[in-house]
Design a protein around this nucleic acid. Structure first.
Lengths: 195, 195
DNA sequence: TAATTAATTAAATTAGCCTTCGATTTCGTC
DNA sequence: GACGAAATCGAAGGCTAATTTAATTAATTA
């Protein structure tokens, strides 16, 4: 079987694992559970992946790459800080919406990465967060955003809101991911209160 | 040794477990790890607690009770919806700030409860969320809040922001929990944008 | 068809898990 | 100092975990 088929089976393993990890958590998910989902024996998994953790690494770092790509696109644009923040939020939501399962694992299970992967992952994350923080700080400097709100609190509140989306968003609902991104951006930037 | 001493030792076990569960997750935390933290053998733990899960039950349901108590106080007050929401947010933050470790476990590890505890826990949570949702809906009805934002999205964004606080808040920082609650309420109700 | 490669498996390895049990130590009180 | 209760321990039971190995089956290619 050629490389494509190999990848395809490996992808199946990783996608099934994502669903399992999301449901039960990484540590509580066994390779037997995973094998059963695919209708094979646990030992067979090791023809496709090197270890349980390799699966987690794939899920975490592939998502991280998507987020970075999305943010880099936004940073290129020459728009106001408010608009940049809006676009960043919408991009983040769209990346997550493309794979809600992997997003949930990315967010909740990355801590089970071993070193040095965990360190690398956290460095990527802090970099990503800081680039959003820079947008907020820029907005505050030019007077678009309030200066009264602590910047760390602002960016952490933002990420909390974004990152929990996979926990409650129903992709079959009336509101599509782009609308969701718009509404989220509206709520976080303009608030709940009527003007 | 009298009951007080017994409780005290049990509390030690539960508090150590909370720190462990927070750090490594429930499933990845072993009773040996926990015993080692306390300087005893794993078998000795069972003089104080019935099982590993009993510890998790304590942590989850004790926190849940605190949240309910706080919200019930707020609901009694006769104030505008905005104000009620503000008070609810501040109360929620204050309850979490009293025990950030237990809060983190409450939020991230409750899914490892077995039945029927998991079901009971989720019922408590959905009830709590719905009572906040009712405040937001009331605010929208009387024209204090925008009607354009989806109510489920609003309340979930709110809870995401609140519930992730234990992940990043540094209790030794300049900003104290009450200030934090005020700023969070301000950001969520009024938004980031300068008026 | 024969040769090669991929996919799967059963069995074994090694290690860890939670929990129980009986015996022992610690400790406050008489 | 002796007694009884609480706390702790060592050892073991019973299970489940991830992974490796060697053998087998299926699929592809030449």
């Amino acid at each position: 079987m050629e490389a494509v088929g190999n990848l395809s089976r490996k992808e199946q393993v990783i996608r099934s694992a994502a669903a399992l990890f999301r449901e039960k958590g990484y540590a509580a998910s066994s390779m037997r559970d995973l094998a059963q989902k695919l209708g094979i024996e646990a030992a067979s998994l090791y023809s496709h992946i090197k270890s349980k953790e390799e699966i987690l690494q794939h899920l975490c770092f592939d998502m991280a790459a998507e987020f970075r790509k999305s943010l880099a696109e936004v940073e290129k644009k020459e728009v106001t800080a408010s608009e940049k923040l809006r676009l960043g939020i919408i991009g983040h939501i769209q990346v997550m919406a493309k794979d809600l399962t992997a997003s949930a694992v990315f967010m909740n299970e990355h801590r089970h990465l071993s070193q040095p992967f965990l360190r690398d992952f956290l460095l990527l994350r802090i970099n990503y967060i800081n680039r959003f923080k820079a947008i907020i700080e820029e907005g505050a400097r030019v007077g678009e955003f309030k200066d009264s709100i602590d910047k760390k609190l602002a960016v952490m509140t933002l990420f909390s809101s974004l990152n929990w989306m996979p926990m409650w968003y129903d992709p079959s609902s009336k509101i599509d991911p782009t609308q969701l991104g718009h509404q989220l951006a509206d709520m976080l930037v303009n608030g709940l209160k009527k003007v």
